[in-house]
Structures are given as C-alpha cells and as structure tokens.
Design a protein around this nucleic acid. Structure first.
Length: 261
DNA sequence: ATGGCAAGCTAAGCTTGA
C-alpha cells in the first residue's frame, strides 16, 4: 500500500471527438475538476492532430493516446498526474485492438483501464459487439488474476437495468438495452465487479448519454452507458461515485469515482 | 412508428454513433 493515504479521483468521459471537446472548453473544465486520472473514449483523432501540451500544462504530465487505425474513429486515452508503473495498450487480440478501445495504467495499489465497448446500433455491428464483449470478458477474467485491484472505467454502451434508461419498454429492442446485452453486463458484474454509482445510489435516476436529436438532453431522455466498475477488493476504498451531468462538451457527460488509496 | 443531430472523413456527401 502507499505510504501516504490519499484520494484518487478518476474521471471517465466519452468526449465524442477530443478536438470538438477542446473547442467547447474541456481543458478548462478538467483543470477545475482536477481528477488525478482521466479516462477518455472516442477521441476520434491521432495525437499529432491536436496539441497534447495543453493537458500537460494543467497537470497531466503523463498522457497516453491509443487511436484506432481508422482515421477519425473511436480511440481511447488515459491522462494522469501520477506516473504509472506501466501502461498497456489494447488486449493483444488484433481485431479488438484495431479500433483503439482499451488502455490500462498500473499504479502502486490500483490499475485503471479506459474502455470503449463497441456500439451495436448498426445491424452489421451487433454481432461484432457481442463477440467483442465475450472476448473482453475472457480477457478480463485472466487480467483480474494478475491485477486484483482493477478499475474499468468507460463507455460500456449498455444500460444495465430499467432505471438506467428513460423508456425501458420502447427501447427494449434497441441495441444498448437488449436483453442479451443486459445479461452480459449482469454476468460481468457476477464475475467480480461492482457498479460503483449504483452501489452508492441505488435509487437515483441519472443518465450519462443523450441523443443530439429531438432536444433529448434538455428533456432528460437519456441512457446510463458510462460506468466505473471496480473489483471487489476495492469496495472498501470507495468514497464517492457521481455523474457529472453539468459538463456539456459531448453527447455523453463525465462520471467520477473517488477512491481512498 | 419514424426521424431527428453531431463529428469527422474528404472536399458535397458519406459513415458512424446509441
């Protein structure tokens, strides 16, 4: 364990294009929110397409970008004020890693992964998503043995329960809330993870994504797709798990986890 | 039931997202 007890604040944010989010002021917002670790998804850019120094200037000395092979598509990142002992890009499974969907930083007492699970809303992508989820579960089953203190933060592209979506009846045949996807998330949790927001806020109706269409955000017609999932040994370390819906740099909003580590 | 909006590709319209 660390010699000094401190809080680690982790923010996960699907930014829907980091350059667009930067134009909307995400850097100033991050400077003020001041998490220790930032997990980003859908950066939609290669690092040479923007100035990463603006993140270093607000304290994120350690920036790791993992873009997709396809330009302007998907991609995750992990920014940290604390120097990680090691950073791992992807799973090592080529078809998963082409799309830049996970990056992990190992610190002394905890490993943090930024995850972007695929969308299944296009017909031809649902099978891909389901295959990806199964292979990801198997990858994590093994990873958890090596790194028992694991935080997997990101956009899972699945609402778990009816409370997590504004219209559970109408949307039960739409990818993101399909029984097969919800069952996968249940099994993922049963395999040894905790949905930190739901543990601390069992009744709260809060979302982390709203369609740009039909004025959905103003009407709070949302979905809870973004999670900080932690392994059981970390449960006693949870201090706070909140959804930061005031941040408006994306169609998602950020989610915060604070651990006493 | 349907369509609606945005980002980023590349250079007017297409792909993807959920």
């Amino acid at each position: 364990m660390s010699k000094i007890f401190n809080d680690m604040k982790i923010i996960s944010y699907n930014v829907n294009g980091i350059r667009a989010a930067m134009r909307k002021g995400i850097v100033d917002w991050l400077a003020q929110a001041a998490p220790d670790v930032v997990c980003l998804q859908e950066i939609k850019a290669n690092p040479e397409q923007f100035d990463e120094n603006v993140f270093k200037e607000i304290g994120y000395k350690y920036c790791y970008w993992y873009p997709a092979e396809k330009k302007g598509y998907s991609g995750v990142a992990l920014l940290s004020k604390i120097k990680p002992n090691n950073v791992t890009y992807g799973t090592g499974i080529p078809y998963m890693d082409e799309e830049g969907r996970n990056i992990r930083a190992d610190f002394d007492d905890v490993s943090v992964m930024s995850l972007y699970l695929p969308s299944g809303t296009s017909d031809h992508r649902l099978d891909f998503k389901l295959t990806y989820m199964d292979d990801f579960q198997e990858y994590i089953n093994n990873l958890k043995k090596e790194f028992p203190n694991l935080v997997i933060s990101g956009d899972y592209n699945i609402c778990h329960q009816a409370i997590d979506i504004h219209d559970p009846v109408r949307l039960k045949r739409v990818s993101g809330f399909l029984p097969v996807e919800r069952d996968w998330l249940s099994k993922f949790l049963e395999s040894g993870f905790i949905d930190t927001f739901r543990l601390l806020n069992p009744e709260d109706v809060q979302y982390s994504w709203w369609s740009y269409r039909a004025n959905s955000r103003a009407r709070n017609k949302g979905w809870r797709l973004d999670y900080h999932m932690i392994t059981k040994p970390l449960e006693e370390k949870i201090k706070r798990a909140v959804i930061l819906s005031e941040a408006v740099h994306s169609d998602h909003c950020p989610v915060l986890l604070e651990l006493a580590i």
